[in-house]
């Protein structure tokens, strides 16, 4: 599932990534024409995420077979999702869609299944639990035989990674707004499960497969330390957002302390 990079499915994946970047750029341009502020850093982040996806779909990362596969998974399941989430695609869609489309998107966002998926433990389980099934069950060996299953696994790894990054970072408006403790716990739990899985891969390949000991060790260490880097980045996003919110709270308190009218205690729903 990992070496045949030039199949039609790989081309399709790369095409979708490029298409996504184009749509994002058009939507951002629309906002700016209208006079809205939209940070170019968000465009940059989103485009970088799409570029990472397209690159690993077309070019096999260097290293042994399993190491190359692991680099590809790290890119599609962790790096690209983080970059895309930092581009705040849902916020952009909500702002740039016509009213009908916006209403439909909001209905989806507020639907019950999405609320369930956006519960941090569920998102973490889908993400890392899927990886455990893949590497510790018969899935990996089966995907070697059937190209469609391999493609499906890639899609799942990307989608689950995107969901997890979105839920942990909570940059876009989510149906329920899980607190920082729950999001942090999900991040630590997922990071731990990821680290343990990487360690077990060091010792034993996925059932039904055989890789060289060097290849296996390199892949396991790549998964372990690569996962760490993305985990730190996610924690930094969570922490810096909290810091900014705390600064705003502080400013509000000191305004209130200075004798100004207290603002109405209505629950604000995003910006």
């Amino acid at each position: 599932m990992q070496h045949q990079q030039d199949g039609p499915l790989a081309l399709l994946a790369a095409g979708l990534a490029v298409g996504g970047a184009v749509v994002q750029a058009l939507a951002a341009a629309r906002l700016r024409r209208r006079g809205d502020r939209w940070s170019p850093l968000r465009d940059l982040s989103f485009t970088a995420g799409a570029a990472v996806l397209a690159a690993v779909a077309l070019i096999a990362p260097p290293g042994g077979t399993f190491t190359s596969h692991m680099a590809q998974h790290l890119a599609t399941g962790m790096v690209a999702p983080l970059l895309i989430v930092l581009g705040r695609p849902v916020t952009l869609a909500l702002r740039s869609l016509p009213p009908g489309g916006r209403r439909r998107l909001l209905a989806v966002l507020r639907s019950r299944p999405v609320a369930a998926l956006a519960y941090p433990p569920v998102a973490a389980l889908l993400d890392v639990g899927g990886l455990w099934l893949l590497y510790r069950g018969p899935l990996f060996a089966a995907a070697h035989e059937r190209a469609w299953l391999g493609a499906l696994i890639h899609v799942h790894v990307f989608a689950a990674g995107l969901l997890f990054a979105a839920v942990v970072c909570a940059l876009d408006p989510l149906p329920s707004r899980p607190g920082i403790v729950l999001r942090g716990a999900a991040l630590v739990g997922a990071g731990a499960a990821h680290a343990v899985l990487a360690r077990t891969l060091y010792a034993a390949p996925p059932p039904g497969t055989a890789f060289g000991a060097r290849d296996l060790a390199a892949a396991a260490e790549l998964m372990y330390y690569g996962g760490d880097l993305v985990e730190i980045a996610l924690a930094a996003v969570v922490g810096l957002r909290w810091y900014a919110a705390s600064g705003r709270r502080l400013a509000r308190e000191s305004r209130r302390g200075a004798g100004c009218e207290a603002p109405p205690a209505s629950a604000s729903y995003g910006q």
Binding site: G191, V196, R199, E231, A235
Partner: peptide
């Protein structure tokens, strides 16, 4: 990095503290 004889509970404990360590240092600094 890995001992073949490492029992599962030690791996889990280590993984948990490993993941928590990174998170803790970032959140502590913030």
């Amino acid at each position: 990095f890995y001992d073949r004889s490492t029992p599962g509970v030690a791996l889990v404990s280590d993984g948990l503290f490993h993941a928590f360590g990174w998170f803790a240092v970032v959140i502590g600094l913030v």
